[in-house]
Every structure is written in structure tokens, then in C-alpha cells.
Computed example of a mutant assay.
Amino acid sequence: MIERELRQRVPLVGADGVFNPAAHGWARQPIVDTSGIDGRRSWGRNKRWEYWCITTPTHLLALTVSSLDFAAVHEVWVFDRVTGESIGRGATGIGARSATLPANLEGGPARARVGALSIDIEEVPGGTRVRAAIPDAAFDVIAEHPAGHERLAVVVPWNRKRFQYTVKDVARPATGTVTVRGAVSEVPAGESWAVLDHGRGRWPHDVRWNWGAGSGRLDNGRVIGIQVGGQWTDSTGSTENSVLLGTRLHKISEQLVWDYDTADYLRPWRISGGGFDAEFVPFYDKRSRTNLGLLSSSTDQCFGHWSGTFDSGEETVRFDDVLGWAEDVHNRW
């Protein structure tokens, strides 16, 4: 597959509000202007969100701020890797009023307020501050932005009315604290990582996807960030596959082969293609099911460790026990 690398800022939609073909491609930084996905000029199929997941030696932390036009859906989740305890709360607001989302990534704060759930995301010197709180749990984390750090930005078009812009930013060094029932634990520097999924687009009603990510270090101390996806990009001329080595992004312009057991998601997964060959061994399945007729969601987000090899065309690297996740999702939304 031949994908075009975008090198200059480009709008996702034109003045008519429909997809701009000049935006079809990928970039090393978030240079696509998504201010046209605002829920005003076109309403009903817009999807806007910020998802952060932080992995630490002791905890998994995640939050979602999202607007789906007709509803704003948010979540905060804290998982204790030692005890296996999961503390989470989701909240849905009618319309988009409970969500504050910037027109472009890092163009302003993102916030959510629904009942006892609160989320605040804002840019600070050297990185992004990510805060979330629900009853019994809270976290306050800085996701550092190292100099020269690249992130994968991809525009995926299904047609001129349905398209998605995603930024997958992996292996951001993280520091901060997580608090569970008053007990404070560190998010230790050098051992903790933050990953961002930033999305803006207009989606079909029925869609399936895979997403996998991992952050860590090679044996020589070099940073590695894994970013792989599947299903939703099929036949679009785009992929969301890449590997970060150090601060440099290596794009994989090939659909990967995903092999996993939908009857037992905790069995090892195998993902390969485009120089990437890895096994993913899960230890926890964050499983959720919702069925409201026209609106439904089925998600198995498995957390575990990646091991394998990656051939960038310039070198082949071996990685082992890289903490992250792989998921299988089916949404009607």
C-alpha cells in the first residue's frame, strides 16, 4: 500500500463541510485541522474524543472525554495490578454540554463534568496534564512530550461523508500520583507511560475495529512504542500501524494479520505484517457490553505484554515484555 505523508497543515473538511481529499494521508505530527468537526454545520454523525491510558508498575489508569453529538460519553477507570481490583465509573450526558473539547489537538483544554465524575486535560510546559476523579479513585499525571517525539496522525476515509482523523501518541513518559480511597501511590518516572487516542470524524453507524498499543524500552534502554490497528481501515487506502523507536516514527503501510480467540480473549494473540511480528499475552480483559437497540457496544480491551521483532528496513529490533493492550470492538453508535 502506498500512503501519502502529509507535510503541511491541511483542513479535514472543506468549506462545504464534506471531506477534503487533500487530507487523505498520514503525518508525524497532528497537522490536520479538525475545526470543521464542531457539531454545528453537520450534526448527528460527528464523533469527537480524547482517550488517555497510563500504565505504571502498580496501576492501569484510563479516561475518556467524548461527544457523539446526541450524547457525551465519559469514563474514568483505575485498575490495581497487584490486587486485581477495578474501580471505574461511566457517565452519559444528553447532548454535548457535559464535554469541552478543543477544535484541534492541544488547541485548548478538554473537560468533562457529570455528577461525581470529573476530567481535566490541559497542556502544560513540557507535556500534558491529565487529571480525573470519581468516588474512591483519582489520578493526576503529567504525560511528558520529549523533544523531537513523533506521533502517528492518520486520516481514514470511507467516503466523502464518512471519515476519521486519529492521532495515536504512544510512549509518552509519565509521572504523577494515583489515589485510591485516600491511599496515594506514585506514578514513577522511568517506569510509567501515557498513550493518547485523539479522534475527530464522522463515522458509519456500524463499525468494528482492533487497536493495540504498547510502551516501554528495549534491552539497550531505547524507547519503543507499538501502535497497531485493524478492521476499520480495511479498503480505505490507510493504516494506523507504526512503531516508535526512540523519538522516530516508522510507518507500516500494510494491513496486519490479527489472530486471536474470540471465545477466550485471554489466550495469546498474534499480530504480524509489514516487518512487525509479535505475540501479545494478556493478563486482564476489561470487558464491557451495552445493548440499547440501535445503540450497542461490545468491547474486550485486554491488557498484557508484547514480545517480538520489528524490521524497520534499516534495522531489526527485538522487544520483550512491553506493557500495553490489544482490543476487539464492535460499535453501533
Rank of each mutant, 00 (worst) to 15 (best):
L6W: 03
Q8H: 13
R9G: 15
V13W: 05
G14V: 02
G17L: 09
F19S: 13
A22P: 01
R28A: 09
D33I: 11
G36R: 06
R40K: 13
R40Y: 02
R40C: 09
W43L: 09
N46D: 15
K47N: 11
I54P: 10
T56I: 04
L60A: 00
L61K: 05
L63Q: 13
T64A: 10
V65F: 09
S66K: 02
L68A: 14
A71K: 10
V73H: 12
V73N: 08
W77C: 02
V78M: 01
D80K: 01
D80S: 12
R81Y: 02
G88H: 12
A91G: 14
A91Y: 02
S98F: 11
A99L: 11
L105Q: 12
E106D: 13
V114T: 14
L117W: 04
I121K: 00
P125L: 11
G127V: 07
T128S: 00
V130K: 03
A133S: 15
A133V: 10
A133F: 00
P135E: 13
E144I: 03
P146W: 06
E150S: 03
V156C: 11
W158A: 11
W158P: 12
N159E: 10
N159R: 07
N159F: 04
R160M: 11
R162I: 13
A171F: 08
R172A: 12
G176Y: 10
G182N: 01
A183R: 15
G190H: 04
E191Q: 14
S192Y: 09
A194E: 09
L196P: 02
R202W: 08
P204T: 06
P204R: 12
D206W: 07
A213I: 03
S215Q: 07
G216Q: 05
R217I: 00
R217M: 08
L218V: 05
G221P: 02
I226T: 02
G229D: 01
Q231G: 00
W232F: 15
S235Y: 12
T236Q: 05
T239L: 02
E240K: 00
N241C: 03
S242D: 05
S242A: 15
S242I: 07
S242K: 05
V243H: 01
L244K: 09
G246V: 05
G246D: 07
H250L: 03
I252P: 01
D261N: 14
P268V: 06
R270Y: 08
G274R: 01
D277M: 07
V281W: 01
F283T: 12
F283N: 04
T290L: 10
G293Y: 00
G293R: 03
S297N: 12
Q301H: 10
C302L: 01
F303P: 00
H305R: 15
E314T: 15
T316A: 03
V317Q: 05
W333I: 12
